[in-house]
């Protein structure tokens, strides 16, 4: 399992969050844009360092500010699916997915599973956004990640594609043996996928955020931007 307690001073607020996730389970981080979700994911991946705190994976310590430990992203062996643009443009989809594969033969199976088998030889710019994201998930899974991080993987896609992928991903979740941490600002998506939901607002855990967002007009002090986004998402 993964456990993290993270503190970091950011430009507009101080981030202070702790989270954990068990193997085979999915923790969905939700909250308004600019609330620190991506920063948290990046700290778990080792792309950014917290000012203070710990990241522990099983019996390995990935980060510990007191002991001066900071394991490089290369050594954490995790999967990270970005919102978009993370496939290598010079490689075709198959080579992208096989880029860091433990066993290149498994890539075929993954491509079958994600229904992009016929696109193996295409370059990323020759396929649709949904197909690119499918390939990005294959790329992450082929490495046999010990932890899977997904940062709004479907939010750049159109509604229909997004809904389809969301469902495929949910059925895949049961087969994964690693903890999955998933970031979204879409409440439907969070409710649909999550075993556990972690609402993050301005860098802190805010358990009442979802309820407030769904039931009430934005209160004073709460950013309208943050409250409207999921409201739109509820329409479809």
């Amino acid at each position: 399992m993964i456990f993290a307690a993270l503190k970091k001073r950011l430009k507009y607020f101080d981030l202070d969050v702790s989270l954990s996730c068990l193997p085979g389970r999915m923790t969905v981080m939700i909250g308004p844009s600019g609330g620190g979700k991506t920063t948290i994911i990046r700290m778990l991946a080792g792309l950014q360092s917290p000012d203070e705190g710990r990241v522990v994976f099983g019996d390995e310590i990935w980060f510990d500010s007191d002991r001066g430990i900071n394991v490089k992203p290369q050594k954490r062996r995790l999967g990270y699916v970005f919102q978009d643009y993370s496939l290598f443009p010079h490689l075709n989809l198959f080579d992208n997915a096989a880029f860091a594969a433990v066993d290149k033969k498994e890539v075929d199976g993954l491509f079958d599973l994600f229904k992009i088998d016929h696109l193996k030889k295409r370059k990323p710019h020759m396929v649709s956004g949904g197909e690119r994201q499918r390939c990005a998930i294959c790329q992450a899974l082929a490495r046999h990640p010990r932890l899977l991080l997904l940062d709004e993987p479907f939010s750049a896609l159109d509604v229909v594609t997004r809904r389809g992928l969301r469902e495929e991903f949910k059925s895949l979740k049961g087969k994964l043996a690693c903890p999955v941490i998933y970031v979204t600002h879409d409440i439907n998506e969070a409710l649909f996928l999550a075993d556990e939901i972690l609402p993050v607002v301005d860098g802190k855990k805010d358990p009442g955020w979802m309820q407030r967002t769904i039931t009430r007009e934005p209160k004073e002090g709460m950013t309208a931007r943050g409250a409207r986004e999921p409201r739109l998402a509820l329409v479809y």
């Binding site: 991946a45 792309l47 490089k72 992203p73 290369q74 954490r76 062996r77 995790l78 999967g79 990270y80 970005f82 643009y85 993370s86 290598f88 443009p89 010079h90 880029f99 860091a100 790329q139 490495r143």
Partner: peptide, 28 residues
């Protein structure tokens, strides 16, 4: 795009390997 490099690091590539396998082929 810096995210390509970050993705290469996540996928286990050292800085040098990322330069050879990601930066160079995309700068031909």
């Amino acid at each position: 795009d810096r995210r390509l490099l970050e993705n290469a690091y996540i996928l286990g590539l050292s800085r040098r390997a990322a330069f050879l396998r990601v930066v160079l082929p995309n700068s031909v």
